[in-house]
C-alpha cells in the first residue's frame, strides 16, 4: 500500500503544481497546456481509485474535447495573442470566494453520513460499466437525469452555435 500512497502523493503534487502554474502563467496558451496536465493528473488519481470509466472519460472528454475547445477558443480571441495579463486585483476576491466555496462543499461532503456509506466495492471488470448503464436507464434510478442531460446538451449546442454564428457574421 505504501507504493500506492507514494504514487498518489507524487500525482497530487504534480497536479497541484500544474494547477498553480495554470493560473499564474502569463501566456494563455501555456495556461491551456498546463490545464491538460491537471486533467491528466486527475485521470491518474481516478485510476488509483480503480474507476476505469472515469479515467477514460477524463481523457476522452476533458483532454480530448474540452482542452482542444479551449485552445480553439483562445486562438479565436484576438487579445490572447499579445501576452497581456491582468492588472486589476479583483481576481483576489474571486480566488477567496472560490476557496471558501470549495472548502464548504468538501466539509459538507465529509460530514454527510450517507457519503461515508457509499463506499461499497463493485464486482470489477465489465460489470462496473454495465451497472452504470443499468442505473442510467432504470426509471427508478437515473433515467430522468439522463434524459435531462440530453436536453442540457442540446441547449449547450444551440447556445454555442448561436454565439459562433454571430461571431462568424461579424467577421465578414
Amino acid at each position: 500500500m505504501t507504493t500506492m500512497q507514494l504514487i498518489f502523493l507524487i500525482t497530487a503534487a504534480v497536479t497541484i503544481f500544474a494547477g498553480v502554474m495554470m493560473v499564474s502563467v502569463r501566456k494563455l496558451l501555456h495556461a491551456a497546456l498546463w490545464l491538460i496536465l491537471v486533467f491528466f493528473g486527475v485521470a491518474v488519481i481516478f485510476g488509483l481509485l480503480e474507476a476505469s470509466f472515469l479515467v477514460i472519460i477524463q481523457i476522452v472528454l476533458y483532454i480530448g474535447a474540452i482542452a482542444i475547445l479551449i485552445v480553439f477558443a483562445i486562438m479565436l480571441t484576438q487579445n490572447a495573442i499579445d501576452d497581456t495579463y491582468q492588472t486589476s486585483r479583483r481576481w483576489l476576491v474571486t480566488a477567496v470566494v472560490a476557496v471558501i466555496a470549495l472548502a464548504g462543499i468538501l466539509l459538507a461532503l465529509f460530514t454527510w453520513p450517507q457519503g461515508q456509506a457509499l463506499t461499497s466495492t463493485l464486482a470489477g471488470g465489465q460489470q462496473d460499466i454495465a451497472a452504470i448503464g443499468l442505473a442510467l436507464l432504470d426509471p427508478e434510478g437515473y433515467l430522468i437525469p439522463f434524459e435531462i442531460a440530453s436536453i442540457l446538451l442540446l441547449a449547450a449546442l444551440i447556445g454555442g452555435i448561436y454565439v459562433g454564428i454571430e461571431h462568424k457574421g461579424e467577421e465578414k
Partner: peptide, 17 residues
Amino acid sequence: INVGVLYLIGIGSIGEL
C-alpha cells in the same frame, strides 16, 4: 481492460494533442 474501446478513442485524442 474493461474500457478498451474508449481507450482507443482516448489515445486518439492524445495524438490530436
